[in-house]
Computed example of a mutant assay.
Amino acid sequence: MAFGPLFGYLGDRYSRRWLMAFGVVLWSLTTLCGSFMTNYWWFLLFRAMVGIGEASYSTIAPTILSDLFVGNIRSKMLALFYFAIPVGSGLGYIIGSETAKLLGSWHWALRVTPGLGLIAVFLIIVFLNEPERGASEGSGHMEATSWIEDLKEIIKCKSFVLSTAGFTCVAFVAGALSWWGPQFLEKGVALQGYKNEVSSISFRFGIVAMISGLVGVPLGSIIAQKLRHRIKRIDAYICGVGLLMSCPFVFLAIYFAKYSIPVCFTMIFFGELFLNLTWSIVADILLYVIMPIRRSTAEGFQLLVSHTLGDAGSPYLIGVLSEAFLIMLNGNTNESNTNSTSVVTSTTVAASTADLNEFKALQYALFITCFVEVIGGLFFLINALYIVEDKERVERTIHE
């Protein structure tokens, strides 16, 4: 999150291929090293360095795709690229939980991917031919401007600011559900009396998240490509409507967790499917409303904002709210028990309601994601007012 703007600056000025290779090497090695740490602070340091490595790749890779492809072909390639995020997250739950279970230690969940990362580094160095910035749009050689000037121009672009705000809401919801979702569902399963199924929840959650990504990410891109020639503002409409349609499904998923896990997982699937419609489209919006020489900087800025206010903050906020609700619920329970005529009955009630109160507290906290989705949807719909003009301005500037 913090290093995104730095790699954005470097990505607009230096070799993107080597910056990406460095990032993948860093996160592969630090992931592996972190799994061997026995001291908390050393573990935290290596996990932070994983994020630094990811920042290099996340800010630079989309800009290379933008310089290799243009138009609907670019949209297809971005859909394929961002396809990896929900699918990778789902596989993380599946492979991580099963590897840890098979080998008897969570440490092994961190030792699976580094080898794959090093294979990716080899492919980047040997097979990637880095294109010139703006090559796909026929802009020729473009000189980089100062970082301050880049920031001023990026912030002046209303489409970029609004789409970043909307995507921050997407990241907020995705982060909250991925962090708290499995634990919340485990509490719901336990309340239903199926405690033997608790251990499989993370695996099933990963399957649902992965399938929703497999369908949702390319679906958003396909709809946009089909309708762009008729509706110029379709990208903003799809993102806005997608978030608004996701909202009721997320609400129902949270509500039904106590009553029916199959229904809950069904609602999660559709909620995340509509949420996933936005991933590749937001990336496409950034690339066509920002000049080629500033795209890595814009990616870094978007990464910083969306993570800071989105998936980095949402798990903590949900946890704080859950604890506050739990204090309120326990207070009401204790007050009720105090008025009871039987000490034995009071103790029994307190014991039987403890798990229910924990579930309710987390449930009430998770409902905030629904409000955030509505806010995000409105950001994207307002963005529709500016997106065409900002895109045309970039096209005119490139061909001047």
Results as ranks from 00 to 15, higher is better:
A100V: 05
Q302P: 02
G23V: 12
G34E: 04
W180P: 02
I60S: 01
F127A: 10
V344E: 08
Y288H: 09
G138P: 04
I124M: 07
G175I: 13
E98D: 10
T63Q: 01
L191P: 01
F274L: 11
G140N: 12
L378T: 13
R16A: 03
F172M: 05
Y237Q: 08
A135N: 11
A365M: 03
A48M: 12
S314Y: 10
P218D: 14
I238R: 10
V305S: 01
I223Y: 06
K158T: 11
Y82A: 04
E153W: 06
A55S: 15
L102M: 10
A176T: 14
N357F: 00
W18C: 06
A298S: 13
I375L: 13
F265S: 04
A135C: 01
E186P: 06
K101W: 11
T397R: 09
Q225E: 12
L185H: 03
W147E: 06
E132H: 15
T397M: 09
T348W: 07
E323V: 06
L275N: 15
F83L: 15
G310W: 13
L378M: 09
N334I: 14
S146I: 11
L162I: 09
W42D: 00
G115K: 07
F3E: 13
T308L: 12
R393L: 09
K226I: 15
S352R: 02
Y194P: 00
I52P: 08
F7T: 09
G90I: 05
L304C: 04
L80S: 12
A361K: 00
T63C: 00
V126N: 08
M1T: 14
A190F: 08
E130H: 12
I382S: 01
I201S: 06
E54Y: 13
I281K: 01
F265Y: 14
T341V: 05
A312Y: 12
L26T: 05
Q192T: 02
I95M: 13
N383W: 07
L275V: 13
F270E: 11
S56N: 02
G90N: 07
S89F: 14
D67Y: 00
H229Y: 12
I318L: 10
S221P: 03
S146L: 07
G134R: 05
I125D: 11
L19V: 09
G53I: 07
D311W: 14
G331K: 07
V161D: 01
A209T: 11
E143Q: 13
N129V: 11
S35L: 01
P218M: 10
E186H: 05
G319L: 11
G271P: 10
S75K: 05
Y255C: 08
T38P: 00
Q302Y: 06
L110D: 00
G193W: 07
R393F: 04
M49R: 03
A190C: 02
F69C: 00
M77K: 05
R74M: 04
E272T: 15
S212V: 03
F127T: 14
G216K: 14
F269C: 08
S146Y: 11
A144Y: 13
G376K: 10
R393Y: 14
W27V: 03
L277K: 07
L44M: 14
K158M: 13
S342W: 09
L273R: 03
F265I: 08
K152P: 07
L177E: 15
E98T: 13
K76I: 07
G92C: 05
